[in-house]
Design a binder for these strands. Structure first.
Lengths: 211, 211
DNA sequence: AAAGTGTTTGACCTTTCGGTCAATGGCGTT
DNA sequence: AACGCCATTGACCGAAAGGTCAAACACTTT
């Protein structure tokens, strides 16, 4: 088409992204029911009716926020084969998860709220994306175990353990910071957390922390 | 006092507990904002005005629910000394936490929702109860480490790891069950989860799973 | 029987919710 | 200048929210 069409399209996209930003922030702070359309509009500095022009109702806005998170949230561990070194792979995975949890806690918290509520909007994602992914990576872990590269453990529970320990620092940030009497995480915290978790998980399956 | 007074008091208490049961269920399902007073009243099979006779407003009802959870939720690890065997202590602790997560998931989920929202009602508890408890237990762990009874690790992160891995099966029950294509946990799951987590944590700090 | 005390409840209040709609505005095309 | 098309927005709607209140009720105590 013409250039004007493209500009219009990108303007529309840009505005939609801004609305999604505001919605993501508020949904993650107070949950689906706690965040009102007028609060979201206020956060985005537009009238409420304008939000409803871009998203036909609250449900579809919430769904769009979740869809964006899930799309960005590449589950990781791509292009890994049984020939790779499990210690290196798991260490890097844990490291990236911790980094994500501390730098993008809102996504993790919104995801958690949604699952706690019984995942009404994420059933499709869990069934069609997460489940096959988990099955695939479980097979990878099992191959490592069968090859004697790491100790036997249920691969699914190993994945759950990695997710839970890393996401904890996003979802329970308020608790962790309050207990440690801090206002926010420091760079040194990221390092310390990574080391502690990597030690537990890796040593836990008989691997040494790489390098 | 007289017997009638005690009966009245216990009637009042009993009714209050029933209302707290209903409130706990709904708050844990849909969060503070998602659960309405009329839904809670309906769940308890009483008119809404009756709920507000026992709890002066929604806030105080929510607070009472949290207070009851926190009171029941003994943090565990009581009466442990540096002379005890860390492997036995940690194993039993993990085992009891898993049991609790699977048998009483609502409490864990409500607690999690509250922390995700920034713990507006639990700041006092975290500051005055959880923090001293964590400091005390951290010292205990450190004593074990100093005595060469277990590998060096940051005791606080060890505690966070135990909490996160165990509570995950309550808070993310919907995800775990959906991924495993189950409707509910079975007895064998409790055993398997306990073994997997105990293996990671205990081996992770250089301990063997007891007996 | 009357008075007193705590409990129950329907009716009602204000505010806010999600959502609709018609009027207005901006802007390129003819 | 007139048209068409999407974007913007204030006014408005019914429903549901949290909360109040006074009348009725149950049950002792006198």
């Amino acid at each position: 088409m013409t250039t004007t069409d493209n500009t219009k399209q990108s303007n529309r996209d840009k505005k939609q992204q801004q609305l999604l930003d505001a919605a993501e922030k508020l949904f993650s702070q107070t949950g689906y029911d706690g965040a009102s359309m007028s609060m979201i509009a206020k956060e985005a500095s537009v009238p409420k009716a304008n939000v409803l022009y871009y998203f036909k109702n609250k449900d579809s806005l919430y769904e769009a926020v979740l869809d964006r998170i899930v799309a960005q949230w590449n589950l990781g561990l791509e292009n890994i084969t049984p020939d790779d070194d499990p210690a290196v792979v798991l260490y890097n995975y844990i490291k990236s998860k911790i980094k994500l949890a501390i730098e993008q806690p809102m996504q993790s918290r919104l995801f958690a709220s949604e699952i706690i509520r019984g995942a009404p909007y994420l059933q499709g994602y869990l069934r069609n994306s997460a489940r096959p992914w988990i099955r695939e990576k479980s097979a990878l872990f099992q191959a490592w175990i069968d090859a004697g590269k790491m100790n036997a453990i249920d691969p699914q529970h190993l994945l759950f353990a990695i997710w839970s320990t890393t996401q904890y620092y996003a979802d329970f940030e308020a608790e962790v910071l309050l207990v440690q009497n801090k206002l926010e995480y420091e760079n040194s915290d990221v390092e310390k957390i990574t080391q502690s978790i990597a030690q537990l998980i890796l040593t836990g399956v008989g691997l040494a922390i790489p390098e």
